[in-house]
């Protein structure tokens, strides 16, 4: 089970890192520095799929493979704002991890990538901004079953029944007319 809040996750990971590092090294601050580089496309439209790319290296520029890097954005919703985690990725042999990201709303978006640190490396952090242009509505209701013409089938069925009633009425009218013209000697119940 994972903690809910992105911030607390970082805090706990950091605490964990600090604890474990404490066993190995005199202090966390002495861990070698890391450099995190976040590449964000400069502009995009809402609904467009983008690739966020983060590269983690040590101070000497050597890639750090096999560690978890988190991607975040600053979001505001229904009066509440905060950092939301967009996703995580594990760095490859070249120290690069990518995240597929779809901006959902027009405007400037603050993006961030963070490496919480590991026993061997200190934490790293990078920021980026993305300006998002307007896009089509992203959420679409999936329509339920629509059978074309079913209403007309119903109308046709009902009209057929009522047309028959009508023709019976016409027959009744004919009977009534015949009753008026029938000669009295023809009378037979």
């Amino acid at each position: 089970m994972r903690p809910l809040v992105a911030g607390s996750r970082i805090a706990s990971l950091l605490a964990l890192a600090t604890l474990s590092v404490a066993g190995l090294a005199p202090s966390a601050g002495e861990r070698p520095e890391t450099l995190l580089d976040l590449r964000v496309p400069a502009a995009a439209n809402a609904g467009e799929e983008l690739e966020l790319r983060a590269r983690l290296t040590d101070a000497g520029g050597a890639p750090i493979p096999g560690v978890l890097v988190g991607f975040y954005s600053l979001a505001e919703f229904a009066g509440v704002s905060g950092e939301v985690m967009l996703g995580e990725g594990v760095t490859g042999a070249d120290g690069v991890t990518t995240l597929r990201y779809v901006p959902r709303r027009e405007g400037e978006i603050m993006l961030a990538a963070r490496f919480p640190g590991s026993p061997a490396h200190g934490p790293g952090r990078a920021m980026g901004t993305l300006s998002v242009g307007p896009g089509p509505p992203l959420y679409r209701e999936t329509p339920w079953i629509r059978v074309p013409g079913i209403v007309w089938a119903l109308v046709a069925l009902l009209s057929a029944v009522w047309a028959t009633y009508l023709s019976v009425m016409v027959l009744l009218l004919l009977i009534a007319r015949d009753g008026r013209v029938a000669a009295p000697e023809e009378v037979r119940r």
Partner: peptide, 20 residues
């Protein structure tokens, strides 16, 4: 409380990405 268009949700204390 979330929005499927913006793909965000909040409980009044923090914001999360709804789909995630």
């Amino acid at each position: 409380w979330g929005d499927l268009e913006e793909d965000l949700a909040t409980n009044g204390k923090e914001v999360v990405v709804l789909s995630r």
